[in-house]
Nucleic acid binder design. Sequence first.
DNA 1: CACCAGGAATGTA
DNA 2: TACATTCATGGT
Length: 217
Amino acid sequence: MTNIKGGNKIRELYKRLRKKHGQPAGQWRLWCKRPKKLCEREEVIIGSILTQNTNWRNVAKAMEELKKQGRCSLVGIRQMGRNRARLGQMIRAAGFYNTKSKYLLEIAKFFEEIGGVKKAMRMDMADLRKMLLAQKGVGPETADSILNYALDMPSFVIDEYTRRIVRKEKISRSREYGFLKKLFEKNIKKDFAGYQDVHALIVIANKTKGKDRTNKT
DNA sequence: CACCAGGAATGTA
DNA sequence: TACATTCATGGT
């Protein structure tokens, strides 16, 4: 158990990414920020739903609109319960606004029921993860994003970019979520901040390569 | 008009 | 467990 295939490569990858990209920048500035304010944690939770199947620029637009309307918080979302159509219009730019507005309301309700974000941070991570996964619209990636980036818990996020780099670096050929998650968690110091940075850097590395599109701010 | 975007849920073998 | 299909939408 001390020797998991690929462990070395993961540690090498970590070092390499850090050297090449430094601290996660751009959109990741908020997500990797430590410590976060309570309102920022809520923004990350909201963002984790909005970002599903959508690019960051559009998510940013939706978040801007929510902020402009003073709704970029769990309470703010909750209060839109009686007017989901309007909530949908606010997050329209992120696409899938019909389902996402529903998911947002559900996740906001969920956190309210368990006593808020602060309370959530003190819960058992495995228990909370299961509860999150039981929410509609929350799959493993979204659940781990919330645990790791919003709640400062050591739960590594696996996404398509991680799978790509894992394959490219010949670390493993598996694409299975649970396997890859364990693989990373067992080979990186168990620390939520480190998990955040590694995942962010993996995404950044994937986006940075190849075609460097007309990068705008 | 086709395709991409940081998925999730459900069905099938 | 591994794929395939469906869902469902803005931006380019």
